[in-house]
Amino acid sequence: MTNFSYFRPGDLNSAIGDLITHEGAKFIAGGTNLLDLMKENVERPARLVDINQLSFNSIEETEGGGLRLGALMTNADTAYHENVQNRYPLLSHAILAGASAQLRNMATNGGNLFQRTRCYYFYDLATPCNKREPGSGCGAIRGFNRIHAILGTSDQKPETACIATHPSDMCVALAALDAVVRVTGLAGERTIPFADFHRLPGDEPWRDNTINPGELVTAIDLPAKGFPQYYAYIKLRDRASYAFALVSVAVALEIENNRITDARIALGGVAHKPWRKPDAEAMLIGQAVSVADFQSVAEALTEGAKGYGHNTFKIELAKRAIVRALQQAAKLEPTP
């Protein structure tokens, strides 16, 4: 990895102040993705600002009856936290479907949001990649793209083409739960609805999210509604554990008297961000639980999906996974 300097601030202001006064500086928390990318020379920060002494490592109740997940709490401590397991089991399951026990012990909630894609071409400095080197092209579109996106891709202009996926499991559940990201910068604190935090590649595939330079994620707020009764997280991958999703589906339902009163469906492994489509979810509201409806929703949710050769199988796989996850969440089918 390239040489860098290191600073460990004791409070939020000096962390942000140090970052913005040093060009090429980056925050480091768990480091599980950043150090990996630094060893590959994909990331070459001139300075690391270690935020681990800041105090965002707890889980607290919010005034609205939800939970505030500290950005520095580890993924493992979050997934196994009693309140998360009992009130937001979808989130707990999604976190535990990702990475390995060692990595979950290191990786933080804030850092999970900033994971970069695992696109092979993003990692391979010998190939073009618009995300790594803006304007250089996309190696994946005509390359080996088995793990790549089928929805919301950018493929019209070579200089902005990108079919990368967002790799997180946790974020798929957070999207379904309508979480809110709290960030602090020089201008003070602001909140970002989860659906607006990550972005599609569009004309700027090098931008993964909507955060501004010098802003730091301090917490993720979960709304009161946690869907503890009807939920499912299905992750399909090339081995049974410790692999990124080819397709994953987070489903959260509210069912009263066999009628669906609320429905959330988020997909992972298929797009540049967790994929939701409120129109498709709305098709279920007020309806009785029915597999035929689930199939219609799967069609609507994947409308416009496009394969690039090796990944074309994901379109059908995603539809079937959506139906299966809805069946599991509605308890039409036992959860394995």
Binding site: T32, L35, D36, D50, A76, Q102, L103, M106
Partner: peptide, 21 residues
């Protein structure tokens, strides 16, 4: 996982953390 060690009783990958941290 060959580099697994325990830090404060918790297992981590020692290759993905800096000694200074």
């Amino acid at each position: 996982g060959a580099c697994t060690v325990l830090v404060d009783g918790k297992r981590i990958n020692s290759c993905l953390t800096l000694a200074v941290m």
